[in-house]
């Protein structure tokens, strides 16, 4: 139990595209550790002098580490927060890692309006977000959870449409998929465990203030 120790602050960082910008922005406010790298073989990287521990987790697992207090704080995309629905403090929008959660469909299946897609199969990494979105429109769908390569779903007849993260839209175009609706925007968020935020309030709140200055100056991007 790493957050057990009141002296240390345990920070969870996600593998993948958010790792480097997150490590960089934390370094700017003095939170870093020797050997902090996505490729690190160590599971817990400690900075004894500054009393910081870093853990690097799979993206989708990060909110769970923070919810349970295994990490005090973390940085993760809003898309993952929406999907996982964990009970954590969402303290600051760090503005980088911008992407959109989109509904897309192959050119050949394009319909006039959204409700025309009712009862089709949706391939997605984000079944909860997708279901909430369609429910809010009163449209029932069948959801198929995939862990990657979502675009493949419609190509091989596993699903008719997809809900996926889009950064530039290039992957969709290359696979002849057309965006038909936007569910939400997402950027990286600074999150905290609900107990840690209270027990280590001064330290975490100071981090939020320091990060806010960097984000607002535009340096974080």
């Amino acid at each position: 139990m790493t957050s057990n120790d009141m002296d240390y602050l345990t920070i969870a960082l996600p593998k993948g595209k958010l790792f480097q910008p997150s490590a960089d922005i934390l370094a700017k406010i003095g939170y870093t550790a020797e050997g902090l790298s996505e490729k690190s073989r160590k599971l817990v990287i400690t900075n004894e002098e500054k009393k910081i521990k870093f853990i690097i987790t799979k993206t989708a697992d990060l909110p769970t580490y923070v919810e349970y207090g295994a990490a005090d704080i973390g940085i993760i995309g809003k898309d993952i927060l929406l999907e996982e629905g964990k009970d954590v403090y969402e303290l600051l929008d760090l503005k980088y890692g911008f992407c959109r959660l989109m509904v897309a469909v192959p050119q050949a299946l394009l319909q006039e309006k959204l409700s025309d897609y009712a009862h089709m199969r949706v391939a997605t990494k984000f079944p909860h977000v997708a279901e909430r979105f369609f429910n809010s429109k009163g449209i029932q769908m069948e959801f198929i959870k995939l862990n990657g390569s979502i675009e493949l779903g419609p190509m091989v007849g596993l699903a008719e449409i997809i809900v996926d993260i889009v950064e530039t839209g290039r992957t969709l175009k290359e696979n002849n998929l057309i965006e038909i609706a936007q569910i939400t925007n997402a950027t990286a968020r600074f999150i905290a465990n609900r107990v840690s935020f209270k027990m280590k309030f001064d330290r975490i709140n100071q981090m939020v203030e320091d990060l806010r200055v960097i984000v607002e100056s535009g340096e974080g991007k």
Partner: peptide
């Protein structure tokens, strides 16, 4: 901590929670 709210529909005055290190829940 004026950010401790718990539930608006239920509570009408003071609210409190107790925390301890190493347990991520109140």
């Amino acid at each position: 901590d004026l950010g401790v709210i718990r539930d608006f529909n239920y509570y009408t005055g003071m609210v409190f929670e107790a925390y301890t290190p190493g347990l991520g829940f109140p």
